[in-house]
Amino acid sequence: MKEIIAQLTEAFGPSGYETEVTDMIKGMVEGYADEVRTDVLGNLIVVKNGSPEGKKVMFAAHTDEIGVVVTHIDDKGFLRFANIGGVGVATLVGNRVRFANGTIGVIYQEKGDWKELTLDKLYIDIGAESKDEALTKVRVGEFGIFHREFADLGNRLIAKSMDDRIGCAVLIEALKKIDKPTNTLYFVFTTQEEVGLRGARTAAFGLDPDLGIALDVTLTGDMPEARRMDVSLGKGAAIKVKDSSLIAHPKVKELLVQLCETNGIPYQMEVLEFGGTDAGAIHLTKAGVPSGTISIPTRYVHSPSEMVDIRDVQACIDLVVAVSNQDLTGVF
């Protein structure tokens, strides 16, 4: 599984340009699904048929990651950029950017006070000596990602874009463990989550599921002087109560808790004071879809070094498998 996580997190997929990731996943799920298709927004929809009396369950993990878009190339070949998704300025200076063709650049700042640092005082140096040279590598309007390799620390793993390739990995691994599920499962590898839960919205409209569950990362509060948050690495799958996009449907929350209890899956309850997941879009689809989120506790979210614990990941996989095989008749 670590191999899959390494491949997924090192892939290139800024919001709107996720094809490399969805193609990779297509390869990984080959042979395990009954149907694989892509929609207009680029969502990859992997179907696993259940029994006729089963319910339609949509699981969503997003393939896109935060990044940058080039807005200007100056006469000396330096790039200016805007953010794609929620990018913290504090994580950028000295960090590297990678473009689709492999071009690497370093982000640095104009002179000035750290406290007043804003995105428009930063630039990217791709080593070009002139505008013309820069233009052979990068164009204005091109999308890039933060460049960083995967690291295996034992139980804990660090990588860029754990948000939300780790959710993708959970779904892929769960799919491999599911043979004949009770419910018909739609594993949707969504696009454009980081810019407003967009892919999940159109995918859910097309699928119109009975139950929606997002797999995504959540923050933790177990670091030195961290913001107060009662989720820790290594304490199991986090079952979301609320975030800015969703108040988990009481029945979905109860179902997840009960499945953890009966299957001995470690879990913790999660209240996230801001942020959202694809479940926020799914639950407002058509006349409403009862929805919830299974979160993978993650430190340093939206930095190029996001950390997860493999035991939490395993708990999330087990929980997805449990939902897949659960008889939901009369519940949803």
Binding site: D39, V40, L41, R198, R201, T202, A203, F205, G206
Partner: peptide
């Protein structure tokens, strides 16, 4: 418009 129904190019 992009997010209408099942999505629009």
């Amino acid at each position: 418009i992009q997010l209408s129904r099942e999505g629009v190019k």
